[in-house]
């Protein structure tokens, strides 16, 4: 079983390599104008050059930082607020309909409002990212806390635990799969909003970089940036997957 899995993965890598080769051939024979589609070799050279002689590394880190801090703020606020709302049926009755109404609102639509209020600053960018990434975390946390087995709460009451202890010892572990799923979604949102904010507000970062590259028809730079953003998306997904596996290890053990 393990060998066949390895073999299929290898074959799958080969297929990907074939696609890259096809991309190179299409670009080399100029089947598509090189203005739109530079070959993978040119994109790679541009990526390496950006990191060695250019300041691509700095821009990359700026985007990562923005995404991470925005996401962290959103996660902390989301879990705290979600815990308060999720554990109290009264708060839920008053607030849940409003939250459900606000949920489908595109977070990027708040960018012009944030610019008007906070100006074109890094604080504005952070506020937008945090606001956008807040929703998935908040709603998942509320759902997680609301779905805690009622008998567990009864146990807490029987043991005369305080509300804070009930949340920390009973509700939080029981809701953690939902919370982590929300945080995973929040991270994707945070990455997208970081890129969008950089594009609109002209803050230094990958988003701004690829937009400028497109405007000045530097296609290899553009593709290098897009590849880098893809890698960023890929590795953040892996990172949060690892976090999930580590935090939820008791879950698989209990089964």
């Amino acid at each position: 079983m393990k060998w066949s899995r390895l073999l299929s993965l290898l074959a799958s890598f080969l297929v990907t390599a074939l696609f890259v080769l096809a991309w190179k051939l299409v670009a080399d024979y100029k089947l598509v104008s090189p203005v739109f589609l530079p070959g993978p070799d040119r994109a790679w050279t541009s990526l390496v050059r950006g990191f060695t002689t250019g300041d691509l590394g700095v821009k990359f880190l700026a985007t990562v930082e923005r995404m991470f801090w925005g996401w962290l703020i959103a996660s902390l606020i989301g879990v705290a607020l979600g815990a308060a709302i999720g554990t109290s049926p009264k708060l839920r009755a008053y607030l849940a309909p409003m939250l459900e109404f606000l949920r489908p609102l595109p977070a990027s639509a708040t960018i012009p409002v944030a610019i008007a209020v906070l100006g074109l600053s890094d604080g504005m960018v952070l506020a937008v990212i945090a606001f956008g990434a807040l929703w998935p975390v908040l709603l998942a946390t509320i759902h997680g806390f609301a779905a805690v087995e009622p008998r567990l709460y009864e146990v807490g009451r029987a043991l005369r635990l305080s509300r804070a202890t009930v949340i920390a010892k009973i509700a939080l572990p029981s809701a953690s799969p939902d919370i982590l799923a929300g945080m995973r979604l929040g991270l994707t949102v945070a990455l997208i909003l970081s890129v969008v904010c950089e594009m609109i507000a002209g803050r230094d970062g990958l988003g701004n970089w690829i937009l400028l590259a497109a405007r000045s028809f530097r296609a290899p730079d553009l593709y290098a940036g897009v590849i880098l953003l893809g890698l960023l998306g890929y590795f953040t997904a892996i990172a949060i997957g690892l976090l999930e596996a580590r935090l939820l290890v008791w879950r698989s053990r209990a089964r």
């Binding site: 997208i192 890129v195 988003g207 405007r215 897009v226 953003l229 893809g230 998306g233 890929y234």
Partner: peptide
């Protein structure tokens, strides 16, 4: 994993 807005340019 490529963010949708990255294909914008």
């Amino acid at each position: 994993p490529i963010p949708s807005v990255a294909v914008l340019p």
